[in-house]
């Protein structure tokens, strides 16, 4: 257990660099000897793609002693990063022009890009989540949201009953009802900010002067609820991002595997020979 992630990072990156350098040297030597390299880098590439896709299969059989998922992910990451280098060698830094090849290129690039984004997100978002609010399970978020909405409604209704005025209720129905009822939009999903919460809280603060005592108490409760709802939204958005990027990544993976297989098949069948 005594191991530092940094140590591992440096070691694995070093190994990756060495492996890439070896492949590069090998390819260059072959190229210099007028031996074909496109097929060879292609084999490496398709092996890498299949290996990367295999990680998804590995996750489906956790009961087999095939090494820990963490080890697999390390391989997945570094093989994935290494595949960029092999891909560059394979394409010879050419931008493809054929329709199919361009699609394949785009598939690989987008899969890789989604993977890189995913890596970035999986390394940054957990910290944000740990710092903000209570830990909630993604599946339970709708129920919690519903509960908060209900609590907010009840609080406001009670305040109306207690004070006989509707100042807070009017404000609630005008400004806060939607906030409690719905999750945030796409913009927030991609880039959460606290601006909505801040403006709501500021407005509520401003409203204080017009409120009766029961309403003021209710408003205090609403303050807390707004904060919690905002945190819940944050969790919803960030956890959702962590889950939904995989949709894209895995969806692309299958398309990539299929297209790469066809490409490999055609390259082998059409490849010149003598």
């Amino acid at each position: 257990m005594v191991r530092s992630f940094w140590k591992r990072r440096i070691r694995n990156s070093g190994l990756l660099m060495v492996a890439l350098a070896l492949v590069w040297l090998w390819v260059r030597t072959r190229e210099r000897n007028l031996q074909p390299v496109a097929h060879e880098t292609g084999y490496i590439m398709i092996a890498a793609v299949f290996f990367l896709a295999l990680y998804n299969i590995r996750k489906k059989v956790p009961f087999l002693p095939l090494g820990t998922s963490s080890t697999w992910l390390q391989w997945h990451l570094y093989v994935g990063l290494g595949s960029i280098g092999v891909f560059a060698l394979h394409t010879g830094w050419h931008w493809p022009t054929g329709i199919f090849e361009t699609s394949l290129f785009a598939l690989y690039a987008s899969t890789m890009l989604s993977g890189l984004f995913g890596l970035y997100w999986t390394r940054t978002i957990p910290g944000q989540l740990a710092r903000v609010g209570d830990e909630v399970t993604f599946e339970r978020i709708p129920a919690l949201r519903r509960r908060m909405q209900w609590q907010a409604n009840e609080t406001v209704i009670e305040s109306v009953a207690a004070s006989g005025t509707t100042t807070l209720a009017d404000f609630y129905s005008a400004q806060m009802y939607g906030f409690f009822r719905l999750p945030r939009g796409v913009k927030y999903f991609l880039r959460p900010t606290t601006s909505r919460r801040k403006s709501l809280l500021a407005d509520m603060q401003h409203l204080q002067r017009y409120l009766s005592e029961p309403e003021r108490k209710a408003c205090e409760k609403l303050f807390a609820l707004v904060r919690r709802k905002d945190e819940l939204d944050f969790h919803g958005a960030r956890q959702g991002l962590l889950k939904y990027w995989l949709f894209v990544h895995i969806g692309l993976t299958y398309a990539l595997v299929l297209a790469a297989s066809l490409h490999g098949l055609m390259a082998t069948a059409f490849g010149g020979g003598l």
Partner: peptide, 27 residues
């Protein structure tokens, strides 16, 4: 929690090894 991506892989692995029933709650 600084590393957990809330992917639920642990829960699903647990379920798979226990006749599709998770045996803990990730909370």
């Amino acid at each position: 929690l600084e590393r957990c991506t809330r992917c639920d892989d642990c829960v699903r692995a647990c379920a798979t090894t226990h006749d599709n029933n998770p045996r803990f709650v990730r909370q």
